[in-house]
Design a protein around this nucleic acid. Structure first.
Length: 170
DNA sequence: CCCTGATTCGC
DNA sequence: GCGAATCAGG
């Protein structure tokens, strides 16, 4: 794939929005995350406000000439690498008498959806669908799934609800 | 192991 | 200019 003006523009946009190189590569299609990163550097984009961790690549003489270093690191303020905006509030149950028979461990909490596009899913991202497949904003949870499960811990629980644990919706 | 971005260098 | 290979770090 060529770096057409449109694709470069989209790259700039997504990069500015804080998407990772791999996610951008997935959306652009036809390119690897390395290609995206390489292009980002060539375009002299980077920083992105501040998402990059404390990294100081120092290089390793792979076969020849080593070179300069890469110093500078201005004290930048925090950076919102957030993708979701859902805020969950923990409700404290001040009730002195909790359900004596209630079971169903609610140890698994609702993850913040990454709202990934179908093409961004990998073997280990939650494939719980969000929204209407016919709608534009249709997406998938995308949270990390464990051990080959198609869903994250939360959605796996929802998907495989034990019959005995069914509770009535309030 | 998964992921992230950074850098080098042959093409 | 491009991006795979490689690296360091989380």
């Amino acid at each position: 794939m060529n770096w057409t003006d449109e694709r470069v523009e989209l790259l700039r946009k997504l990069w500015a929005e804080g998407l990772s190189a791999s996610q951008i590569a997935a959306q652009l299609g036809g390119v690897s995350r390395n290609a995206v990163i390489g292009k980002v550097h060539r375009l002299k984009l980077s920083s992105r406000g501040r998402a990059a961790p404390a990294q100081a690549r120092q290089k390793k003489p792979k076969a020849a000439a080593p070179k300069a270093a890469k110093p500078s690191s201005q004290p930048v303020r925090s950076m919102p690498q957030t993708v979701g905006a859902t805020a969950l509030k923990v409700e404290f149950d001040a009730e002195p008498a909790p359900r004596p028979v209630a079971r169903v461990d609610d140890s698994v909490i609702l993850p913040i959806s990454r709202n990934l596009k179908l093409v961004e899913l990998t073997d280990r991202t939650c494939k719980w669908p969000n929204g209407d497949p016919l709608n534009e904003d249709f997406n998938f949870c995308g949270s990390a799934s464990k051990d080959g499960s198609p869903y994250c811990a939360y959605h796996a629980r929802v998907a495989y609800q034990p019959v005995s644990d069914r509770r009535r919706a309030r």
